[in-house]
Computed example of a mutant assay.
Amino acid sequence: MKKEKEFTIEGCDKKNIKTIVDGINTYNLNQVPAIADIWTPLEFVIKDKNGNEIGGILAGIGYWNGLEIKILWVKEEYRKKGIGTQLLKHTEKIAREKGSKTSMLDTFDFQAEAFYLKNDYTPIGEINDFPMGHKRIYFSKELTNEI
């Protein structure tokens, strides 16, 4: 007796992605009610005096009021001048004003590990040899009422 396949795995289209996101959001919110909008973007660019983009941050606040930093980038020639810290502090301040108590992110040891340590982030986990010879580091920070 040959058993028929009960399931298939296929690539996603936009409708499938919406179904997946809606499904996990429904499940999550049935477990722990939201205290914020599903996603509040906090995305900023920093420009020089001539209007050239020299850095930016892509972040947002999730439905449990956590600040999630996805990308923070500063053009190479402007690094180590406080621009990244300025962007980070600006975003954290707005997140605190919106009720965030925690910030979270990940980076690699060859990217910004020292930067986040300098800005009071605590390493909470890491994956060694990803990529090979390096590590991916996960950080969090409790957002206090500092200004």
Rank of each mutant, 00 (worst) to 15 (best):
I17N: 09
K80W: 05
K101G: 11
N50G: 12
D48K: 15
T8D: 02
T19F: 07
K118E: 05
F115N: 10
E97A: 13
I24T: 08
T144E: 06
L143M: 02
E53M: 14
A95P: 02
D129S: 00
G125A: 12
I69N: 11
E113W: 02
L29I: 07
E92W: 00
G82T: 03
V32D: 14
E53A: 15
W64G: 00
D129A: 05
E97P: 00
P123L: 04
N50L: 15
E43I: 09
K101E: 12
F139V: 03
K101F: 11
K49A: 06
R136G: 07
F110N: 04
A112P: 05
G62R: 09
I57M: 07
K2M: 04
I35V: 03
Y63C: 04
N145A: 09
K135E: 00
K89G: 00
K70M: 12
T144H: 02
D120V: 07
A34D: 00
E126R: 10
L87I: 11
T107Q: 03
E146T: 11
K15N: 12
F110C: 07
T122F: 04
K2I: 10
F44N: 07
G66A: 12
E76D: 11
G55D: 00
T8M: 01
F115W: 09
A36C: 04
D48H: 13
R136N: 11
Q31S: 05
T19Y: 11
M104Y: 13
A59S: 15
I35M: 01
L42R: 15
F110M: 07
L29A: 02
T40A: 02
I35C: 01
D106Q: 03
I20P: 03
R136M: 15
